[in-house]
């Protein structure tokens, strides 16, 4: 597990120069007009056995509310080291978040699954709101969430 995680951590550094064996991937998340405070979002990957691999991105303006991203918190063990350097602001109701990352080629078509947890202050948490296999074929095909996410897609 560790070597893959190391690769992943390395490749998700936004400022890192393009590496051989990496692909530029854009994650686009459009939120519903749910009317509440900005949403916290966690993007992370599990493998074919359902085990946690690593985190791609975290939209969370306050560390205090990160435990509300309940599945991420359980998968990662609440380890804040997992998200250092890959954290941005929370996303307002109805807004769109676009994040571009260099992801290892080996993450695609290899049984890995992308999870997105969403949480909004004073509203119910929506863990694993989106659960999506990472495949080249699935790129640019929008899927919708069941709670706060109107649509999500990744483009390579």
């Amino acid at each position: 597990m560790r070597p893959l995680l190391a690769t992943l951590a390395l490749t998700t550094a936004l400022t890192a120069p393009s590496l051989a064996g990496a692909t530029e991937v854009t994650l686009k998340t459009q939120l519903r007009n749910y009317g509440g405070k900005p949403a916290f979002l966690a993007y992370y990957v599990t493998d074919q056995t359902g085990a946690y691999v690593g985190t791609l991105w975290m939209a969370a303006s306050k560390a205090r509310y990160i435990p509300d991203l309940t599945d991420w918190y359980r998968y990662s063990g609440g380890d804040m080291n997992e998200i250092s350097g890959i954290t941005g602001a929370s996303v307002g109701s109805g807004r769109t978040l676009t994040v571009t990352l260099d992801l290892a080629d080996t993450l695609f078509d290899a049984g890995y699954t992308l999870h997105i947890d969403a949480a909004v202050e004073h509203y119910p948490a929506s863990p694993s709101e989106i659960v999506l296999p990472l495949t080249r074929e699935g790129a640019s095909k929008p899927v919708s969430g069941r709670g706060y996410i109107e649509s999500f897609s990744y483009a390579m």
């Binding site: 359902g50 085990a51 946690y52 205090r64 435990p67 309940t70 599945d71 918190y73 359980r74 998968y75 063990g77 609440g78």
Partner: peptide
């Protein structure tokens, strides 16, 4: 607790194996 001055990290069990 809000400002993290008293320990307030919720304990959670790890994801279960099915």
């Amino acid at each position: 607790a809000t400002f993290g001055l008293v320990p307030d990290n919720p304990a959670v069990p790890p994801m279960p194996a099915a």
